[in-house]
């Protein structure tokens, strides 16, 4: 439903990806995984059409529900007003949002469970609250393609959990194509079906989460060993940082 075909992008000698094809079909959730600074957000922007590529085609519906990492940060409007902006594509150049747009925005707020934020001023909200508003705005567009840039990276543990559970629920309730970036393999494991891994050195590998997120590949991806544990009663393993004794450092 949304993706790129045979795409390449380099900045000088730095190769971000070459000959890469990514497609997120309806009903699947894909995570773009990689270390900081590897170009996850740039790949996302290329898929959205905000970043010109050296080569390649992109395919996407005309309207995509996009959740930026830091959206609307200076906007002194109410939560509901920010969500209503998601209806902009339906309004036209001189259009004003009407009652049906406010209704759609309220419905989106209900969907993300953030009705209590409708009248709060956006610029006074916490990071977690803003995240919910921006996700609701993406839903208010009515698009079945959802793209989220680092939806969890600035959030505390509680808000990470809330956001991930919302992403999982959104993927399940309708045949949506969901694409998000993250640097935490556990978050990809928690909600994604497929993963696109941006390896150090310019290679990009992809596949189903269960096959791709293995201790070996993760050690290669991040350049450090990790402990993999299977919580009691769980079917999957999660990555944990090793115990630091302080003896190996320096």
């Amino acid at each position: 439903m949304i993706g790129i075909t045979d795409a390449s992008l380099s900045f000088g000698a730095l190769r971000l990806f070459a000959g890469l094809s990514v497609d997120v079909p309806r009903g699947r959730t894909t995570a773009i995984l990689g270390p900081n600074g590897r170009g996850k957000t740039t790949l996302l922007r290329a898929i959205l059409g905000f970043q010109a590529m050296d080569k390649g085609r992109r395919h996407a519906p005309s309207i995509v529900g996009y959740v930026p990492q830091h959206g609307a940060s200076q906007v002194r409007l109410s939560g509901l007003e920010v969500v209503t902006m998601g209806r902009a594509a339906r309004l036209g150049l001189f259009g004003q949002p009407g009652p049906e747009d406010a209704e759609a925005a309220s419905a989106a707020l209900v969907q993300v469970g953030a009705c209590h934020l409708a009248d709060l001023r956006y610029d006074r909200m916490s990071g977690g609250q803003r995240q919910m508003i921006l996700i609701a705005r993406a839903l208010a567009t009515g698009s079945d393609a959802l793209v989220l840039d680092e939806p969890t990276s600035a959030l505390d543990l509680g808000n990470q959990s809330r956001t991930l559970s919302l992403i999982a629920a959104l993927g399940r309730t309708r045949d949506r194509a969901i694409l998000f970036t993250t640097h935490d393999p556990n978050h990809a494991l928690a909600v994604a079906d497929d993963v696109v891994m941006m390896m150090p050195g310019g290679a990009v590998v992809q596949g189903a989460v269960a096959q791709m997120i293995t201790p070996d590949l993760m050690a290669e991806l991040y350049g450090v060993p990790m402990n993999w544990v299977r919580p009691d009663g769980s079917k999957r393993r999660i990555a944990m940082l090793p115990e630091f004794t302080g003896k190996d450092a320096l």
């Binding site: 922007r45 959205l48 059409g49 905000f50 005309s62 309207i63 995509v64 996009y66 930026p68 830091h70 959206g71 609307a72 940060s73 200076q74 906007v75 409007l77 007003e81 902006m85 998601g86 902009a88 594509a89 339906r90 150049l93 001189f94 567009t141």
Partner: peptide, 16 residues
């Protein structure tokens, strides 16, 4: 439209 134009450029574009 001015409300939308006062958003970040990529954000505004994603909203159509």
């Amino acid at each position: 439209r001015l409300n939308l134009l006062s958003l970040d450029e990529a954000e505004a574009r994603s909203l159509g």
